[in-house]
Write a protein that binds this DNA or RNA. Sequence first.
RNA 1: GUCUUGUUAGCUCAGCUGGUAGAGCACGUCACUUUUAAUGAUGUGGCCGAUGGUUCGAAUCCAUCACAGGACACCA
Length: 502
Amino acid sequence: MIFENKYIQQRIEKANALKDAGYNPYANNSQRNTSIEKYLNVNSDIAETETKRDENRHYIVSGRIKFLRIMGKASFVKIEDESGMLQIYISRDNLPEGFYNTIFKKNIEVGDIIEVGGFPFVTGQGELSLHVDSFTLLTKAIAPLPEKFHGITDKEIRYRKRYLDLIMNSEVRKTFQIRSRVISLTRRFFEDKGFLEVETPMMHPIAGGANAKPFVTHHNALDVDRFLRIAPELYLKRLIVGGFEAVFEINRNFRNEGMDATHNPEFTSIEFYWAYKTYKDLIEITKEYFQYLFDHLDLPTLLPYGDLEVNFDNFQEIPLIESLTSVGGVPVDVTKDKEKIIAYLNEKGITVKPGMNLGQLQGELFDEFVEEKLIDPTFITDYPVEISPLARRNDEHPEITERFELFIAGREIANAFSELNDPVDQLSRFEGQMAAKESGDDEAHEMDSDFVEALSYGMAPTAGQGIGIDRLVMLLTNEHSIRDVLLFPAMKPVTQETAEDS
RNA sequence: GUCUUGUUAGCUCAGCUGGUAGAGCACGUCACUUUUAAUGAUGUGGCCGAUGGUUCGAAUCCAUCACAGGACACCA
């Protein structure tokens, strides 16, 4: 039985006592006329007055009781709404006869949501407060809140019961407010640039656009399996074929893989595609985008991240092969030779899967020796074609692609390239991926012949980019686990749940 | 998936080399009309994550399992 806990029983009894006394413990007649933040702002002048009070002003505020200090015939209570915390002063003689002793002191407690009216005054300790002359219980909380000083620190409870985390930790609310603003600003930035926001399918017949294992579901009416999308890329490019010249989509992707500090099975990205542009233009718009975010979020461009400090005025641009040497310290002659790379990696105690090609090995070197050293924002450009199945080849150097990934604080934030629009090349790249899949790479890209057919009608030269919103928010809020920027991160069910459900 | 550390009251945590459980907050009762984690007095509260084992005796030792945190692997 869910309410068998004795503290909950006790509070249910209080709710019943209130009902018996004619007070609805779940009243629905809120008269609130200001937020706590506004109240504190509007009345900040009271401190300057001689009496430190103004009985001619009157406000009604609402909030959850966070602290309750009862001192005989008067009490101080701290209530919190979304905007902030306010101290209210309640004295017996300012409320109806008997209310203070028999209702307030007996049946109101921390966690309850109340509404009070009164006038502003400043206490002897100098705190702007509300002198209460009317008191209404709006919602009785029958479950006791966690301890008032330490709050709730158990990460498991914080993630599983995010509502408790939000009640107890106001800075958590702040993180999610920033997240919301980042998404809103991102939308506005691209709209202002003339991009059109579109919605493409979340359920795909072929899971394409990235290398990842998909979630599978079944469509009964058609009796076909569908894959939750791993990326919207191939649909957005179909729209470019259709004649839209600048589109973007902000939404969830799903990948059926491991979970850790930077991976959640569902995550949010923005992908945008821009016709008649190249990856060089994307570098410029990306810098502009970050500038825009920092301006509107009012963040310092020298941003702390854990022990690191990231300088957002210092965007770097380094070709991947060059970075292996200049950042990773790998000798130049090693970076261009398959056998030497394998020998070099082995020497460093790293074993590689047999049959890797030069591009994959260069990627391996990058992951191993470069990625974590890229602290200030760095565009790594010119990726090997073998590890870029959807990117356009460089006209002069067909073994590399017109692509970049943006790294910040040692982590990949964005992936972008001039799109491959040669349908014959695209077909053969898919075939190469098929071959890789045959030889055991179960995350190789699926053949999508409908997409190849779309390209065959002609896609204007286009540049496209994806940005991981969760990781971006982590960076901007100095959070180090993706779970701290997801309101409801994925969790394993606890045993009891599964037993009851089955 | 591997390694590692946790899981004790509603919450935050003690509990040493095995001898039937402790604190603070919260809650109950009493006192208190300017407090700031209010204070003082007093009391209630526990299947010590689950299941087995060792033992006269297990919160404590061992094994298995579950969940979580961290690290690694995987995820270009």
